[in-house]
Design a protein around this nucleic acid. Structure first.
Lengths: 246, 246
DNA sequence: TCCATATTTCGATAGTAAGCGAAGCATTTA
DNA sequence: TAAATGCTTCGCTTACTATCGAAATATGGA
């Protein structure tokens, strides 16, 4: 009659996140990419049998989806809503002590991925410029004519293949406490930035590297003067998706 | 060096929600009101000693705040971000099976509180009318001149006392999967609706009753033809804040 | 001052679940 | 077909924590 069962399920969902090993897996998956069970086993730093149990529990709660490819099983976050929920949880964790200077590593604060789009200082600044230059509608839900024209010229795909996903929209940035661009357009923007080698994804984290050409492009096309983070702190690893044990 | 501690804290935060008793307490608190430890003990249906421990754990994670008043200790959600996070968690729980007809009780789906503003079918419809009549800016972040004028006439306080809180904004409705009005304006709207006796808050739940005069007002002022939910299913309880044991 | 009520602290118990290693099944490579 | 790799299932141990009742502490009213 009342929402008794809802409460039970709320607890079950939270419990699925509440284990340190699973939380570590989820944090890795926040970058929107798919990882094999072995890779997730490595970040969690547990036996493969234990990791397997954890993964089935996450899948059971529909927090992750699994696709089998040969003898590998690839796991990824189930959808953007899960990522958004995790971000908002993270926001509370970080926001718990607003007096103290953020413990977030500067490199992550500067630029990182949030599921499939960009987040951090750079993404927030970019969003503000898009609004200021009137490339983006004030509601952040649609492009203006000029915006569409300019972004297309920069290699951003402004034609979503299907209408299932929201075209654009804001997403609250937990490190900056301001909005950055999400939705389909946010995803297309990250893809274009990567394709032009303006940013490079770090392999084992959500960190994004702003390249030298990226720095130039931001200045020329968006009037943004941001200095790239010091490179080479973490060597670019040629081994595909190798995840370091802690 | 990396966000190891963040992950630990994410797990700790989730663990605070993950217990069925605490989840029940949090669901009750979602209506934005403050409840005494005894009342929360009743919904959780545990010994007072157990409830006390639960409450200190919630407070420790800054999910709730406590104010002491005489021999009573009143607990409420720490802030709107906590409420938003819980809503997004709920959304996942409900959204997990989009094929099946929602298990949410019809009365809750029709009208309820979401922290301090209205949610449900009615709130979604109201939000759409506010946009259609151009009382609200398309971005849902500001009132238009006409909107301010009309709403003020209806007793809505359109002058926020301080600028700390976002003036207006959308909030995703988990039962309707559409947006309703949140922010300071959403709060003021609910207050005005209550003051005019257009809606009445149910004591023991997040449920909102649309009154007969409320139904008329919606039709006259907003052009909305919504029928009120059958009254009297749950007798209006004269005992202040009495919470039923399950 | 004394008693009733509200809430927390303490000590003990029991259920849950995270952990490991060994064994099993499935798929790819040799 | 045999060997190697990826992953899961099973059985067992251990650690944590939700729970209760009893006792302690604090507050308000008589």
């Amino acid at each position: 009659m009342d929402d008794y069962f809802l409460e039970q399920k709320l607890a079950a969902m939270a419990a699925a996140i509440a284990d340190p090993s699973r939380a570590r897996m989820l944090c890795l998956l926040m970058d929107g990419r798919a990882y094999t069970a072995t890779e997730l086993t490595a970040v969690a730093d547990v036996a493969s049998s234990t990791a397997s149990k954890h993964l089935s529990r996450l899948a059971e709660q529909q927090l992750v989806h699994c696709i089998q490819q040969g003898r590998h099983r690839y796991f990824r976050l189930a959808n953007a809503e899960v990522a958004a929920m995790l971000e908002s949880l993270m926001g509370l964790v970080v926001g718990a002590r607003p007096l103290v200077v953020s413990k977030t590593p500067p490199s992550l604060r500067f630029a990182r991925t949030c599921y499939d789009h960009m987040a951090g200082e750079m993404a927030v600044a970019l969003h503000q410029r898009l609004l200021a230059m009137a490339w983006l509608d004030p509601s952040s839900t649609a492009l203006t004519g000029t915006g569409r024209q300019h972004l297309t010229a920069l290699g951003v795909n402004c034609q979503p293949p299907d209408a299932r996903r929201r075209f654009a929209g804001t997403c609250l940035d937990w490190s900056e406490r301001q909005f950055h661009l999400g939705g389909w357009l946010g995803c297309a923007l990250l893809q274009a930035f990567e394709a032009s080698a303006w940013v490079r994804r770090e392999l084992d984290s959500r960190q994004l590297q702003l390249t030298a050409s990226g720095q130039q492009a931001l200045s020329r096309h968006f009037g943004l003067a941001l200095s790239a983070m010091p490179l080479g702190l973490r060597a670019t690893n040629p081994v595909p998706n190798k995840v370091a044990r802690r």
